[in-house]
Nucleic acid binder design. Sequence first.
DNA 1: GCTATATGCTTGCAGACGCAAGCGAGTCGC
DNA 2: GCGACTCGCTTGCGTCTGCAAGCATATAGC
Lengths: 148, 148
Amino acid sequence: MTDLHTTNALRLLQVADDFRAGLSGEFSAVHGISVNEFFLLLHLERSAANRLPRVDLARRMHVSASTITRMAAPMEKVGLVDREVDERDARLVFVVATDAGRAKLSEALSTFSKRAGYLFDDRCDDEELDRFASILRRLIAGTGDTLA
Amino acid sequence: MTDLHTTNALRLLQVADDFRAGLSGEFSAVHGISVNEFFLLLHLERSAANRLPRVDLARRMHVSASTITRMAAPMEKVGLVDREVDERDARLVFVVATDAGRAKLSEALSTFSKRAGYLFDDRCDDEELDRFASILRRLIAGTGDTLA
DNA sequence: GCTATATGCTTGCAGACGCAAGCGAGTCGC
DNA sequence: GCGACTCGCTTGCGTCTGCAAGCATATAGC
């Protein structure tokens, strides 16, 4: 039908969509956050001092700067993140994870891991898992932001 | 940091997002369609008679029925798809690909394959590609709709 | 045949997002 | 210093999407 590259890309997108759709439901029901909010918190945790400028978050998350502004606002209200202005450069506004934010991330991450387990367990042995991770790592390379 | 299942799932989502973001720009610029419209056409092509009930499309594409309604309308206007009502059951409204729709899909698919080539080429050898495809196929299994 | 229920589709409304414009803050050249 | 440019953030507007309600059609029980 089509070449292997194409088939792999199609399957990749489909698996990712399926997984994300499953996550979305459980996240909003159990943790009260969206998948994007989860990733925002995760990016913060993986960063230097639990904080990132808004423009950095936007680039890492493949969303526009305005989306970060509008995502952060309600999260500040609920106390998941705080707002910090850089002392040197007043243009930079950091999104910083609060203790509550890190706790929420931790809960959500365990849900994430559980579903990741459902996805891979009984479908891959350990060696395949390693190879899979190795390939994915190379496919990410070039974007810069690691996250995993 | 975290177990391999989790790492793989995170990387999977990230690679898929990166790839989809890249596609999105080229699709709208070169072919004048969105990524979702591309997938709609692809699902039709992969189906029995180049046509599917709207509710089926919705399930396969992980979107709501209303989204299909609103996606199909402008595509009918442009002539990419047609509308057919089932003779036996007047509730079923099929979305059917026109010749123009299949041609558009063919163009877009070549763009898709090109980008899939960029993604995998020089990063995986043939054996890895096979293993990758094998794993992804198993990860999809269970949803029913194949697509690839 | 008639009512009750289920199914597929569409529409009103609200939420999330991108783009472009606007504003404040920093930097460079003079 | 001072103007011109750049950069980060926010806001207005249009688009896309999901959810819930409504409508039309089909099916089951009587």
